[in-house]
């Protein structure tokens, strides 16, 4: 198994997400588990207007990179290979946006036996 980060880009703010999408996020670990993967960790971010960027000594209000699609959250999943990881990442509920799947460096999981 290998580990991948799934970056969630969503144009709808977390507070405005419909109930079924929130429920979808709640159910995600179980659905991933059913398909032979594991969600190792997950985090949801407050909207980008709450961010503070630091470049050297300068502080600026807002995110480091301004984009229309906003990084709303990240989770780490364990999958057999890229195809498996992509199939699992597709389960992520999204209103308007998408996800990016990135392999993590040096997190190959050696299974017992």
């Amino acid at each position: 198994m290998a580990q991948y980060a799934v970056l969630i880009f969503e144009r709808v703010a977390p507070a405005d997400l419909p109930a079924e999408i929130m429920q979808g996020h709640q159910d995600l670990p179980a659905r991933v588990d059913e398909q032979g993967g594991i969600i190792v960790a997950g985090l949801a971010l407050e909207p980008p207007d709450t961010a503070t960027a630091i470049r050297g000594e300068t502080l600026t209000d807002g995110p480091f990179i301004e984009t229309k699609e906003v990084l709303g959250g990240v989770f780490v999943l364990e999958a057999r290979d890229l195809d498996h990881a992509l199939a699992l990442a597709k389960l992520t509920p999204i209103v308007d946006g998408g996800v990016e799947v990135r392999p993590l460096v040096g997190f190959e999981v050696v299974e017992d036996g």
Partner: peptide
């Protein structure tokens, strides 16, 4: 190598 792209013929449905 890094993303572990599978070395296999995809399943029929894919």
């Amino acid at each position: 190598a890094a993303a572990r792209i599978r070395y296999a013929v995809p399943a029929a449905r894919e």
